[in-house]
C-alpha cells in the first residue's frame, strides 16, 4: 500500500524514513490451553491496575504451552481486547498457530538471543525479516509512568515517552507533564500538560478538575477559564481542531 502511494504521488523529498527501533512490550507467556482459567487470572491482574493495562500492546508467547492441545486464537485475541490490551503478535507456537495468527493480522515475532529460550528454527526467522519494517511501525509501546502517592506542591513529574497515571491527588503548585495522556484518579489542583511533544490526540482525564492550568499539545486553559459546569467534576480535556475542550466524563 505504501508503494502504491509513492507511485501515485512522486515527491522529491522523502515522505518517510523506515528505521529499526526497540520497544518495551508486555509479553504474555501462555501456560494453559484453558482460556477460562486464563480469563479469570487476567481479570485479577488487570483489576490491580486497570489504567496501566489500558491500550497496552501485548505479545502472546506460546513457547511455554504444553505440546498437546490447541489454543483457540480467535477467542484469546477477543479476550485480550476485551480487557483493553492491543494484541500485536505472537512468539513461538506450531505452524498452525502461526497460520492462525497471520489470518488475524498478528505479527510473528522471534525473541532476541539474550532471552535464552529461543526455540524458533532459523527458517522462520527469514520469513519474519520480510515482515519487520511493517511491524516496527505498528509496535510503539509507550513507557507509561504510574504514581500512587499524592503529588505535592513543588513536585514535577514527567513521563517523556508515554502516559502519566496518578492514583492520588495533585496539589496546587505541582506540575505533571506527559508526551501522552495524563490520568489523575484524585483531585487535580496543580498543572497538567499532556502531549508535550506535540501529540494533539493526547488528553487529560481527572476525577475532580480544579487545575491551575491544563494543556494539550501547547493549547492551554488556566483555572480562571474553567466553567462552573466542569469545576470539581470528573472531566476530560482534549483538542478539537484548534480548540481546547473540557467535557464531563459522565452525564
Amino acid at each position: 500500500m505504501a508503494t502504491q502511494r509513492i507511485k501515485r504521488n512522486p515527491s522529491p523529498s522523502p515522505a518517510f524514513d523506515l528505521k529499526g527501533s526497540l520497544f518495551t512490550l508486555t509479553v504474555m507467556k501462555l501456560m494453559s490451553h484453558d482460556l477460562d482459567i486464563v480469563s479469570d487470572q487476567l481479570a485479577i491482574k488487570v483489576n490491580q491496575a486497570p489504567a496501566f493495562f489500558q491500550s497496552a500492546p501485548i505479545v502472546i508467547d506460546l513457547q511455554m504451552l504444553p505440546e498437546n492441545g490447541k489454543v483457540d486464537f480467535a477467542l484469546l485475541v477477543g479476550l485480550l481486547r476485551g480487557f483493553g490490551f492491543i494484541p500485536v503478535g505472537i512468539v513461538g507456537g506450531s505452524h498452525d498457530d502461526k497460520e492462525m495468527a497471520r489470518a488475524m493480522d498478528l505479527a510473528i515475532l522471534s525473541l532476541g538471543k539474550n532471552t535464552g529460550a529461543v526455540k524458533a528454527p532459523p527458517v522462520i526467522t527469514e520469513k519474519i525479516e520480510e515482515k519487520i519494517p511493517e511491524l516496527k511501525a505498528v509496535v510503539a509501546a509507550p513507557e507509561n509512568k504510574l504514581v500512587t502517592k499524592t503529588v505535592r506542591s513543588g513536585q514535577r513529574i514527567y513521563a517523556p515517552n508515554g502516559d502519566l497515571i496518578i492514583m492520588a491527588s495533585v496539589g496546587s503548585g505541582a506540575e505533571l507533564l506527559a508526551s501522552g495522556n495524563i490520568h489523575v484518579y484524585g483531585q487535580l489542583r496543580g498543572r497538567a500538560l499532556a502531549g508535550v511533544n506535540g501529540d494533539e490526540s493526547a488528553r487529560v482525564f481527572c476525577q475532580s478538575l480544579n487545575a491551575e492550568l491544563v494543556s494539550v499539545a501547547g493549547h492551554y486553559k488556566v483555572n480562571e477559564d474553567l466553567s462552573q459546569a466542569v469545576r470539581g467534576r470528573p472531566t476530560q480535556v482534549f483538542l478539537e481542531g484548534d480548540k481546547l475542550r473540557i467535557s464531563l466524563l459522565q452525564a
Binding site: 502517592k149 499524592t150 503529588v151 505535592r152 506542591s153 513543588g154 513536585q155 496539589g171 496546587s172 503548585g173 505541582a174
Partner: peptide, 13 residues
Amino acid sequence: VRDSDRILGLLAS
C-alpha cells in the same frame, strides 16, 4: 496549606 504541601513533598524526597 500550600506551603505545607510543599514541605510534605520535600519530606518525601
